[in-house]
Amino acid sequence: MNLSAFFEYDAGIRKIIYTTNPIEGVHRQIRKITKTKGAFSSEQALMKLMYLDYANP
Results as ranks from 00 to 15, higher is better:
8 E>Q: 08
56 N>H: 10
12 G>Y: 00
30 I>Q: 02
45 A>Q: 12
4 S>H: 01
6 F>L: 14
21 N>G: 02
13 I>V: 15
36 T>Y: 06
27 H>M: 13
3 L>V: 11
43 E>G: 09
24 E>D: 10
13 I>A: 07
1 M>D: 12
36 T>F: 07
9 Y>V: 07
6 F>S: 08
54 Y>T: 04
7 F>G: 00
44 Q>I: 11
53 D>L: 02
31 R>Q: 13
27 H>C: 15
55 A>E: 12
11 A>G: 00
53 D>K: 02
39 A>T: 10
27 H>E: 11
22 P>Q: 06
48 K>Y: 12
57 P>K: 11
22 P>K: 02
9 Y>T: 01
47 M>N: 01
18 Y>H: 08
38 G>D: 12
12 G>D: 01
41 S>P: 07
25 G>H: 02
30 I>Y: 01
9 Y>N: 15
37 K>T: 14
5 A>F: 02
27 H>T: 09
7 F>A: 00
7 F>I: 04
39 A>I: 10
28 R>D: 11
2 N>I: 13
48 K>S: 14
16 I>Y: 01
31 R>V: 09
29 Q>E: 14
31 R>K: 14
33 I>Y: 02
38 G>R: 12
36 T>M: 09
53 D>N: 13
44 Q>S: 14
31 R>I: 10
41 S>I: 10
27 H>V: 15
3 L>N: 04
18 Y>T: 02
10 D>W: 01
38 G>W: 12
14 R>K: 12
30 I>F: 03
52 L>D: 15
20 T>E: 04
1 M>V: 10
22 P>M: 05
38 G>S: 11
23 I>K: 03
9 Y>K: 13
40 F>E: 13
56 N>F: 11
55 A>C: 03
31 R>W: 08
7 F>N: 00
19 T>D: 05
22 P>A: 04
42 S>Q: 06
3 L>A: 06
33 I>S: 01
1 M>R: 05
28 R>H: 04
32 K>M: 06
43 E>K: 10
32 K>D: 13
38 G>Q: 11
22 P>N: 05
31 R>A: 06
43 E>W: 08
46 L>N: 01
40 F>S: 14
7 F>K: 03
17 I>A: 04
41 S>W: 03
10 D>S: 12
33 I>D: 02
26 V>P: 00
21 N>F: 15
19 T>W: 03
50 M>C: 11
42 S>F: 06
52 L>F: 15
56 N>T: 13
50 M>G: 04
39 A>D: 10
21 N>R: 13
14 R>S: 05
42 S>R: 03
44 Q>E: 15
17 I>P: 00
46 L>R: 04
47 M>F: 05
10 D>I: 02
38 G>N: 12
44 Q>T: 09
21 N>L: 13
52 L>V: 12
18 Y>C: 07
30 I>D: 02
49 L>A: 06
